[in-house]
Design a binder for these strands. Sequence first.
DNA 1: ATCAGTGCAAATGGTTTGCAGCATC
DNA 2: GATGCTGCAAACCATTTGCACTGAT
Lengths: 156, 156
Amino acid sequence: MHIDAKDLVADLRSQDLRITEPRRRVCEVIAARHGEHLSAVAIYDIVQSGSQSHIDRATVYRTLDALEDAGSIRHSHIGHGPTVYHLSNESHHQHLVCERCGNTVAVGKSQLGPFLDAIAEQTGFHVDVDHFALGGLCRECSDAAPADSSTSDVGQ
Amino acid sequence: MHIDAKDLVADLRSQDLRITEPRRRVCEVIAARHGEHLSAVAIYDIVQSGSQSHIDRATVYRTLDALEDAGSIRHSHIGHGPTVYHLSNESHHQHLVCERCGNTVAVGKSQLGPFLDAIAEQTGFHVDVDHFALGGLCRECSDAAPADSSTSDVGQ
DNA sequence: ATCAGTGCAAATGGTTTGCAGCATC
DNA sequence: GATGCTGCAAACCATTTGCACTGAT
């Protein structure tokens, strides 16, 4: 199921929100870049680059909030960077962010199953896999890292 | 093994750092509140409340950096709040933050072992368990949660 | 007496908010 | 034509930085 800008606009409309040019543009960017994880500022930049008329950052944030309230998109926190947004139907992987080089790796939901089940069993907690990334060291960086595990905290 | 302020001060000294009143105070707070996860501002507030002489927030941040470089403390990112600091020897749990009520639950590193091994095997990624919290819904909130269609992946 | 460490104030980055005017409904 | 949405500017919070001064070594 391919979500496009029209679907997002329809989601807004169904919430009795007015359809304005800035909102339409934000919807277009999100739909066009589906599959990516875009920050509010990135969305703002793309909107700007696509036309000469100016829309405000604040409006982008407000529109993202509206889309999130409408259930169309969700946000994730990946590493130390800004909040990123993605379509709600693209929510099934855990991000791992390398604390040294900043690269991210995604682990599919299927691989996480046993882990999530174990956590739910032990704590009753239902993890929302893609809301927060996990930190650590990627293969390359952990190979290069000093063997001393107690001081493996790097960067930032 | 109980780490106290003297140990932390000694750690700083062993890095050829000068021992100043502000640094000593920060060490005292961290040692006194061991087991807690304190933000820089919380540490600052506690230091302030414990005496009339003023120390600067920037100094707290710089001291925390120094202690982290010395390997004495580490920081974690728990939910949407500010960075929190804790003694390095208290670093073996994964925090789960409830996105609804804000409560946090900790899962011991030992329980996660098999899973982390699996991730390392599949992706080469070595997860630093306590650096980032995971989000989700705690038992109470997921029991109480409406079947919100937009977040249907939460409770899987 | 050196120079690391300090307080201060200003800058940063990401995000939010108050407000007056504009445009969608 | 009401009022929801906008741009603007300013505020925000956590954090960082430049700088001249102070104090640990």
